[in-house]
């Protein structure tokens, strides 16, 4: 069964170590949620796995279907089936959503294979309708001038178009209003299935009411310090991070 295995991962930015030995195995079909205080290294973890060049992996490994991806460029990792929904998606002036996604879809096709434009637009519009994104957005520049919620929806649109094996979703729920949260969650739930593994970073238990996780992990100072099922999120919500801190101090 396909899996994404994070083995004792250490990630540094410059000289500073941010992720300090994190291990986690996500199997296809599973949804894992990671919660943790600000600055604990959640985004660093997801960007390092996606292959951001600013993040140095000082120790450990990341295996996609048993193969280390650490030597691969970000685009190779993406084509191998990894997807990162950004906490703060970049704005790209002058590059339309349609052209951008087209290039991304094309990048996954075999050499010499032609993109069927009609089929592409049909699929794109279907996914946009599902996420209730106005079709006019196809001609807008990627994320430029998008509201926070529109950006997040657009991330899920990309995920839906690119059909990854493993998705790292970094605070996809932040900035979404109540309706958008429901629409985006429904979108993710539609994509959910035996062929997709998800690592979902969030601060809010309410997301987990919509996308019910199989596992919940608490990340603290660059490590996973506690794991459990969805009830852990409820417990966290009720007791706050001080509870985790006290438990840590006792241990």
């Amino acid at each position: 069964m396909p899996s994404l295995v994070i083995q004792d991962l250490h990630v540094a930015i410059g000289e500073k170590e941010i992720v300090k030995g994190l291990s986690l195995t996500i199997k296809s079909g599973e949804v894992h949620a990671i919660m943790g205080p600000n600055g604990t290294g959640k985004s660093t973890l997801s960007k390092a796995i996606a292959g951001h060049p600013d993040y140095t992996i000082t120790a450990g490994d990341v295996l996609l279907d048993g193969t280390s991806i650490l030597a691969q460029e970000a685009d190779e990792r993406a084509r191998a089936g990894l997807f990162l929904a950004f906490q703060y998606p970049s704005e790209i002036p002058g590059v339309s959503i349609a052209n951008f996604l087209r290039a991304a879809v094309q990048a996954r096709m075999a050499e010499g294979e032609e993109l069927d434009a009609t089929a592409y637009y049909k699929r794109l519009y279907a996914k946009m309708d599902m996420l209730k994104i106005d079709r006019k957005f196809t001609s807008r520049s990627v994320n430029e001038g998008f509201s926070g919620g529109e950006k997040k929806r657009c991330e899920i649109l990309q995920m839906a178009m690119l059909e990854p094996k493993f998705a790292l979703m970094d605070e996809t729920d932040s900035g979404l209003d109540i309706d958008a949260l429901r629409i985006v969650s429904e979108g993710v739930n539609t994509l959910r299935g035996p062929d997709l593994g998800v690592l979902m970073i969030t601060h809010y238990q309410r997301l987990l009411n919509y996308i019910v996780p199989d596992y919940v992990h608490v990340m603290w100072d660059g490590r996973i310090v506690k794991s459990g099922d969805k009830s852990l999120a409820l417990e966290l919500e009720a007791k706050g991070y001080d509870w985790v801190k006290k438990e840590l101090a006792l241990a």
């Binding site: 951001h52 460029e73 685009d75 950004f86 970049s90 002036p93 951008f100 290039a103 990048a107």
Partner: peptide, 20 residues
């Protein structure tokens, strides 16, 4: 990086950004 994270290779990404 954003473009690359979608599977677009660096050369094509730079080309897209130039068009942008």
């Amino acid at each position: 990086f954003y473009l690359q994270s979608r599977g677009i290779d660096k050369t094509t990404a730079d080309e897209l950004l130039t068009f942008g």
